[in-house]
Computed example of a mutant assay.
Amino acid sequence: MYVIAGLGNPGSKYEKTRHNVGFQVIDRLASKYHIDMNTKKHKAICGTGVIEGVKVLLVKPQTFMNLSGESIREAVDFYKVDPETEFLVIYDDISLAPGHLRIRKKGSAGGHNGIKNIILHLGTQVFPRVRVGVGEKPEGYDLADYVLGHFQGDEKKLMEEAYDRAAAAVAEILTDGPDKAMNDFN
């Protein structure tokens, strides 16, 4: 079992905001691989299925972003997966241009509160991640208002393409490992 978590905030108020790109990628994976996201457990909406021959649990934590680690910890413990090799997280990154991807095998939270909470709950920074760029906060904007805002204009098309590329990157991580995906998608 491989646990794949996409970060976001629950509720229609937050749908398709910058902070919810992780949910968008999970939705792409669920659609492409015919995985029903209809199970509520581990403080999340989950779906079990197979991606490119690998059994997976897709997870959309419903704890709100800053408490994502609570949900992730429950899933990781329940399935007894090693966070360093059988867990992957997808989330938004304001330090990347809209639509750009950055895959890493480990790293700090980089100021992302959802990742900070996951690191706290897992007790390690060593786990693969797919960061999806949402663009830098404009001068004078409040960070929370920015990441909870919606994409505008040309950004929408860029992000739709990014969700597909991020889903392809996840599939490649599962089949060929993060190093190959880093070479192909970074």
Results as ranks from 00 to 15, higher is better:
residue 20 N to C: 01
residue 67 L to C: 12
residue 17 T to N: 01
residue 172 E to K: 06
residue 148 L to P: 02
residue 35 I to H: 12
residue 153 G to N: 15
residue 52 E to A: 11
residue 96 L to H: 14
residue 76 V to K: 11
residue 27 D to T: 02
residue 151 F to I: 12
residue 61 P to A: 07
residue 153 G to H: 13
residue 164 D to Y: 04
residue 109 A to L: 07
residue 8 G to K: 10
residue 168 A to K: 10
residue 179 D to S: 09
residue 28 R to V: 13
residue 16 K to C: 02
residue 167 A to T: 12
residue 142 D to P: 06
residue 137 K to T: 11
residue 122 L to S: 08
residue 73 R to E: 07
residue 30 A to H: 11
residue 108 S to E: 12
residue 19 H to C: 01
residue 155 E to C: 05
residue 154 D to F: 05
residue 19 H to R: 12
residue 150 H to S: 09
residue 147 V to H: 10
residue 126 V to N: 04
residue 179 D to M: 14
residue 55 K to P: 07
residue 35 I to T: 03
residue 83 P to A: 05
residue 166 A to D: 09
residue 73 R to F: 15
residue 93 D to I: 14
residue 154 D to G: 04
residue 36 D to Y: 06
residue 99 G to E: 09
residue 114 G to S: 09
residue 108 S to Y: 01
residue 161 E to P: 01
residue 177 G to T: 00
residue 78 F to S: 15
residue 86 E to C: 03
residue 67 L to H: 05
residue 113 N to P: 10
residue 64 F to E: 14
residue 21 V to Q: 03
residue 35 I to W: 13
residue 72 I to G: 14
residue 45 I to Q: 15
residue 13 K to E: 08
residue 41 K to I: 15
residue 102 R to Q: 08
residue 185 F to T: 08
residue 163 Y to P: 00
residue 12 S to I: 09
residue 2 Y to H: 05
residue 15 E to F: 10
residue 149 G to S: 10
residue 72 I to R: 04
residue 38 N to K: 03
residue 107 G to S: 06
residue 154 D to W: 06
residue 136 E to P: 04
residue 171 A to F: 12
residue 103 I to K: 05
residue 136 E to R: 15
residue 12 S to L: 02
residue 48 T to F: 14
residue 161 E to N: 08
residue 131 R to D: 03
residue 58 L to T: 13
residue 181 A to N: 11
residue 146 Y to R: 03
residue 53 G to N: 10
residue 18 R to P: 13
residue 89 V to T: 14
residue 121 H to W: 01
residue 145 D to Y: 03
residue 1 M to P: 11
residue 39 T to C: 05
residue 39 T to S: 13
residue 101 L to M: 08
residue 96 L to W: 05
residue 139 E to V: 15
residue 89 V to C: 12
residue 47 G to L: 02
residue 8 G to C: 01
residue 28 R to K: 11
residue 43 K to M: 14
residue 17 T to D: 04
residue 95 S to T: 15
residue 170 V to T: 05
residue 5 A to R: 09
residue 89 V to F: 04
residue 52 E to I: 11
residue 70 E to M: 12
residue 184 D to P: 05
residue 60 K to C: 06
residue 180 K to C: 06
residue 2 Y to V: 15
residue 36 D to T: 10
residue 55 K to G: 06
residue 12 S to M: 02
residue 57 L to A: 13
residue 5 A to N: 09
residue 154 D to I: 13
residue 68 S to R: 14
residue 64 F to M: 09
residue 169 A to S: 13
residue 94 I to N: 03
residue 34 H to P: 04
residue 154 D to E: 10
residue 182 M to E: 08
residue 17 T to W: 01
residue 110 G to H: 04
residue 40 K to A: 15
residue 45 I to T: 03
residue 83 P to M: 03
residue 45 I to Y: 05
residue 73 R to P: 07
residue 148 L to E: 00
residue 53 G to I: 02
residue 46 C to P: 05
residue 12 S to W: 02
residue 150 H to W: 03
residue 181 A to Y: 13
residue 35 I to D: 09
residue 140 G to P: 05
residue 144 A to Q: 13
residue 172 E to A: 10
residue 60 K to N: 08
